[in-house]
């Protein structure tokens, strides 16, 4: 364990854990967009920047992204200085310029007193803030079906060559993790479309309702060792089935008791 100081308060932390985790554990609110507990930190959005110094640095300080900074003994951290406010505000301002219609960004910017971007807004912006949450979660799943393509301001998240991604299993993890809800999909009858690729959805044997994509089911059966017939029914029907089984058990128990 190490001792660090956050906003004047001495705090104990495990050496090597990331500063952001310690700060949040202390109940201090720091905005983030690219951070997600299921993912390794990336440092893309830069909102979690904090100021650090050490006694022996003699007044010298630097700004680091707390999501990536491993804590060490003697660290002195400030999380809400006026300069940090300016940094976060500017970052939100820049993001808002490129995605002026994003309600998530608008709400975050409002908290910094920013009602509209200071820059010329890109009215055709697609709300993608290039946090890589989607590509990182896809990588965690072992698929890497999508990736960042091109460079700089031209950068987009896309499947290889902009075609249907061969490795995509239609699991929707990318869409669900996206902080600005950019990734869209459609489910029509028993067909799911995401990244222009079509997937067959498994129909529940009992109620006929669409469940998950067949590719995803196969992936889970293989990777998670689930029984093959697990995905034959939908969650609702499984629950009903379970309830009926439980009910039967209770009835039986009552019978025995009587």
């Amino acid at each position: 364990m190490v001792n660090i100081t956050i906003n004047g308060k001495v705090v104990r932390a495990t050496e090597g854990e990331m500063l952001l985790d310690v700060i949040r554990r202390e109940g201090i609110n720091i905005p983030t967009l690219c951070q997600h507990d299921a993912l390794e930190p990336a440092g893309n959005c830069r909102l979690c920047m904090v100021e650090i110094t050490r006694t022996e640095w003699d007044g010298w300080k630097k700004y680091v992204t707390s999501c990536l900074y491993p804590v060490e003994e003697g660290l002195i951290v400030s999380t809400h200085t006026s300069e940090l406010h300016e940094i976060r505000k500017t970052i939100l301002d820049l993001l808002l310029a490129n995605s002026p219609h994003s309600d998530v960004l608008q709400k975050m910017a409002e908290e910094y007193g920013l009602h509209k971007t200071s820059y010329e807004p890109n009215l055709e912006g697609d709300n993608c803030i290039m946090c890589y949450a989607c590509t990182r979660i896809c990588e965690v799943l072992g698929k890497s079906a999508i990736s960042p393509v091109m460079r700089g301001h031209e950068k987009v998240i896309a499947p290889p060559f902009g075609e249907e991604p061969p490795d995509c299993i239609g699991c929707l993890a990318c869409a669900h993790i996206c902080p600005t809800n950019v990734i869209t999909w459609t489910d029509e009858n028993l067909t799911r479309t995401i990244w222009k690729k079509k997937f067959e959805l498994i129909a529940c044997e009992k109620c006929g309702k669409a469940t998950i994509s067949r590719d995803f089911a196969e992936y889970l059966i293989e990777k998670r060792g689930l029984p093959k017939e697990y995905f034959n029914t939908c969650d609702d029907c499984k629950r009903v089935e379970l309830a009926q089984k439980m009910g039967a058990l209770v009835d039986k128990a009552k019978e025995v008791a009587l």
Binding site: L94, L95, Y119, M130, R151
Partner: peptide, 17 residues
């Protein structure tokens, strides 16, 4: 602007603006 990798916001969006 052309050579920024585009990973972090200040460089990608900031230099662009």
């Amino acid at each position: 602007v052309k050579e920024s990798c585009g990973k972090c916001v200040p460089c990608r969006e900031g230099l662009y603006q």
